[in-house]
């Protein structure tokens, strides 16, 4: 054993072969592998905690997965998503467009800033679930109320991040744009907005996560529909695996959506971040 090792060190071709043989080690520390491993450990911990059991209402991963397949195959999960995603999609689209617009305007113009910043700081700090009854009183229990809840949850962080991103656009780049005779519009479009993109997108990702919370919250607090219906119904009949399967499903969709946002940013808006990542 030792002899072979020394041999391979002293002769170059064998060293090359050794290096080639050890390459799987590099694959082992690849970010994707590490992610998969950490994911597997979390699932394993879930399984163990569920079998222990921590609580009778906490099913292990395997049972939850079985329940997930059942919900998926009888079509109820997809139907529920159809219902839940409607106010969510509308709310996120509105929050994204309006929120980035307001935030950018606040960053560009101090008068808008003075007007807007206090509102959104209060909104961000307020326990928004407390507003739900008021919204129900104002708009009833329909789509509008649910869209409003999604917006209230998602908008503040999107606005405040967009604002900070624009306000902190590097002065030296703006000065450079001025010195090369850029107009105000050119400087906003070609310098300030690209410079602000990473922080705006961080806000969009946080806002999207908050919007998912808002959509489920709306279904739990207003009227049980969609995913919220599966959760409350299965909780009431103590079918905990199905309840957790529904929760896991909405988390997966949320994570997937946030990943897509990150991909869009890297692919189309800040190509230089791709090579380092």
């Amino acid at each position: 054993m030792i002899g072979t090792g020394m041999n391979s060190l002293s002769t170059p071709p064998a060293t090359v072969a050794r290096a080639a043989r050890f390459r799987p080690l590099a694959a082992l520390v690849h970010p994707l592998t590490l992610r998969a491993v950490s994911f597997a450990i979390a699932l394993l911990a879930w399984e163990i905690a569920g079998r222990w059991p921590v609580s009778p209402s906490f099913p292990p991963f395997s049972e939850t997965a079985t329940a997930f397949v059942a919900l998926l195959s009888d079509g109820s999960l997809l139907r529920a998503f159809g219902v839940t995603l409607t106010p969510l999609a509308i709310g996120l689209a509105v929050s994204g467009a309006v929120g980035v617009g307001i935030g950018v305007a606040m960053g560009l113009d101090e008068r808008v800033e003075w007007f807007g910043v206090p509102i959104f700081i209060v909104l961000q700090a307020a326990p928004l679930a407390a507003l739900v009854p008021i919204l129900v009183m104002a708009y009833g229990i329909g789509l509008l109320t649910k869209v409003s809840i999604v917006c209230i949850m998602a908008m503040p962080v999107i606005v405040l991040n967009s604002f900070k991103a624009v306000r902190h656009a590097p002065r030296s780049l703006i000065e450079m744009g001025t010195s090369f005779l850029g107009t105000r519009a050119q400087i906003i479009r070609k310098i300030i907005l690209p410079a602000a993109t990473p922080v705006i997108f961080a806000g969009l990702r946080l806002g999207a996560a908050a919007g998912f919370v808002g959509a489920v919250l709306a279904e739990l607090l207003v009227t049980p529909t969609g995913i919220g219906d599966i959760i409350t119904y299965n909780q009431s009949i103590a079918d905990y695996p199905k309840m957790y399967a529904a929760i896991a499903a909405i988390i997966m969709v949320s994570v997937g959506f946030i990943e897509i946002l990150g991909f869009v940013e890297q692919r189309f808006l800040r190509p230089e971040t791709r090579r380092t990542a």
């Binding site: 590097p170 030296s172 780049l173 000065e175 450079m176 010195s179 090369f180 005779l181 310098i191 690209p194 410079a195 993109t197 808006l269 800040r270 190509p271 230089e272």
Partner: peptide, 16 residues
Amino acid sequence: GPERSFVFQDFALMPW
């Protein structure tokens, strides 16, 4: 103005 141009101490290059 167009008759003047500037090389900045901190480069001022757009990273994107």
